[in-house]
Amino acid sequence: EVVPINIIKTGENEKKYIGRVILLRNITPFKELDFAKTNFIATISHELKTPISAIKMGVQLLENQKFGELNEQQKELLKSINEDGQRLLDITGELLNLSQVETGNIRLNIEPCSPKEMVQAAIKNVEKLAEQKNISMITQYEIEDGDAVAADFDKTVWVMNNFLSNAIKHSFQDETILIRVERKESTVSFSITDTGKGIDEKYHRQIFDRYFQVPGEHQNGTGLGLAISKNFIEKQHGEIGVKSSLNQGSTFYFMLPVK
């Protein structure tokens, strides 16, 4: 920690800079606590996944009406339980992903991947979510047919899913989301642009921090998705970022090296 020192000499009014104090602190205990916290989160998340999956399976059996007919109120209740169960499952999955990244246990399967195939896989995963708001997704490719990136297919698709899900949540009804893939020298850039309310520039640096959510947003999220995305992309020697202004939509992007 660097602390600048300014003084006002006797008989004078202006402050004068005379130097700085540099404080060095031993943060080993904090690192050890952080590591213990990460292991605790990983263990709890892993243990929670099994009972949550069992709850969802029970709900599905009831929805199939194998144990009798359901009235409308019961159907609505089951739908709510199923949605909450899925949300819990998503949260535990994100926590597990984060703990893998933090402990260095993340396993990447880097291989030549087709950018088009990754985009198509991500779109397929969020099609139903987009249909609920009548949102169309347009793809724009500015790459050669043989272009490939060095990436982990599944984890990169996970990042695109996160970007697309956020874009759909923050877009208005009947809007359009643009997915653009372009070659930039030795990298391929993937960007997802929405027409939502945008993000104030003062939050751009924090947007990829763990648990951070833009103030005033009333979305049911964990604040972990973008932090995990950042780790996944940087572990693949890529770059991630955002371009956005208030009332002008947002563009989230990442770049991966060409194979």
Rank of each mutant, 00 (worst) to 15 (best):
V2Y: 12
G11R: 02
G11T: 10
E14M: 08
Y17C: 01
I22F: 09
L23P: 01
L23C: 04
I27M: 15
I27H: 08
K31C: 01
E32M: 06
K37R: 11
T43V: 04
S45N: 03
G58H: 05
V59L: 04
V59I: 15
Q60L: 13
L61Q: 15
L62A: 04
E63R: 15
E63L: 15
N64R: 15
Q65M: 11
K66T: 14
F67E: 09
E72W: 00
Q73S: 11
E76N: 13
L77S: 13
L78A: 11
K79D: 12
I81W: 04
D84E: 15
D84H: 14
G85C: 07
Q86K: 09
R87A: 11
I91E: 13
E94T: 07
L95N: 10
L96V: 08
V101Y: 06
E102D: 13
T103C: 02
N105G: 06
I106K: 15
R107W: 00
S114R: 09
S114K: 10
A121I: 03
A122F: 09
I123C: 04
K124T: 11
K128Y: 03
E131R: 14
E131T: 01
K133C: 01
M137Q: 08
Y141S: 02
E142S: 13
G146A: 12
D147S: 09
A150I: 08
A151S: 13
D152H: 07
D154V: 11
N161V: 02
L164F: 09
N166R: 11
I168R: 05
H170I: 01
F172I: 15
L178S: 13
E182H: 05
E185K: 13
S189E: 04
S189N: 12
F190T: 02
S191A: 07
K197T: 11
K202T: 14
Y203D: 04
Y203K: 04
Y211F: 15
F212N: 00
Q213Y: 03
L224I: 10
A227N: 07
K230W: 05
N231I: 00
F232E: 02
V242I: 15
S244R: 03
S244V: 05
S245H: 09
N247F: 07
F252N: 10
P257N: 07
